[in-house]
Amino acid sequence: MRLLRDWSKEILLVLMALIFLSPVYIIFINSFKDRRELYENTLAFPETFSFQYYTEAMEQMDFFNAFINSMVVTIVSVAFIVILSSMTAWMLARTGGKISTIIFMVLIATMLIPFQTIMMPLMQLVTGITNNLGIQLYNTLSGLIFMNIGFHAALSVFLYHGFIKSIPISLEEAATIDGASKLGVFWRIIFPMLTPITATVMILNVILIWNDFLLPSLTLVDKDLRTIPLSVFYFFGEFTIEWNLAMAGLTLTIIPVVIFYMIAQKYIIKGVGEGAVK
Rank of each mutant, 00 (worst) to 15 (best):
Met119Glu: 13
Ile81Gln: 05
Leu21Arg: 00
Ile99Thr: 14
Leu141Asn: 11
Ile83Thr: 10
Ile103Pro: 03
Ala66Ile: 01
Tyr39Leu: 13
Leu144Arg: 13
Leu84Asn: 13
Ala17Met: 02
Met120Phe: 15
Met71Ser: 15
Ser22Glu: 00
Thr110Trp: 11
Phe104Gly: 02
Leu125Gln: 09
Met111Gln: 09
Thr74Met: 01
Thr42Ser: 06
Phe32Ile: 03
Asn139Gln: 06
Val76Lys: 03
Thr101Ser: 12
Gly128Phe: 14
Met111His: 04
Glu47Tyr: 13
Ile26Ser: 05
Met71Ala: 15
Ser31Met: 09
Tyr39Ser: 10
Phe32Glu: 03
Met91Thr: 15
Leu43Arg: 06
Thr48Gln: 12
Ile129Pro: 02
Val78Cys: 03
Phe63Pro: 05
Ile27Cys: 09
Asn41Val: 00
Glu56Thr: 09
Val72Gln: 02
Gly96Cys: 07
Ser86Cys: 02
Ile75Tyr: 11
Gly97Tyr: 03
Thr127Gln: 12
Asn65Thr: 11
Leu133Tyr: 07
Leu15Gly: 11
Ile26Gln: 00
Val24Asp: 05
Pro114Tyr: 12
Gln52Tyr: 15
Thr140His: 07
Thr74Asn: 01
Pro23Arg: 02
Ile19Asn: 08
Ser142Gly: 13
Leu144Met: 13
Val14Lys: 00
Thr88Ser: 14
Ile102Phe: 14
Ser70Ile: 01
Leu13Gln: 03
Asn69Gly: 07
Met61Thr: 03
Gly96Ile: 07
Gln52Cys: 14
Leu13Asp: 04
Gln124Tyr: 10
Ala93Val: 05
Leu133Asn: 10
Ser50Leu: 09
Gln52Val: 15
Leu107Cys: 02
Phe146Pro: 06
Val106Tyr: 10
Pro114Val: 04
Pro23Ala: 00
Phe67Lys: 06
Val76Arg: 11
Pro114Asn: 08
Ala93Lys: 00
Ala17Lys: 00
Val106Gly: 06
Ala57Ser: 09
Asp62Tyr: 14
Met61Ser: 04
Pro121Val: 09
Ile135Arg: 06
Phe104Leu: 12
Tyr39Lys: 09
Thr48Phe: 10
Ala93Cys: 04
Gly143Val: 13
Met123Ile: 09
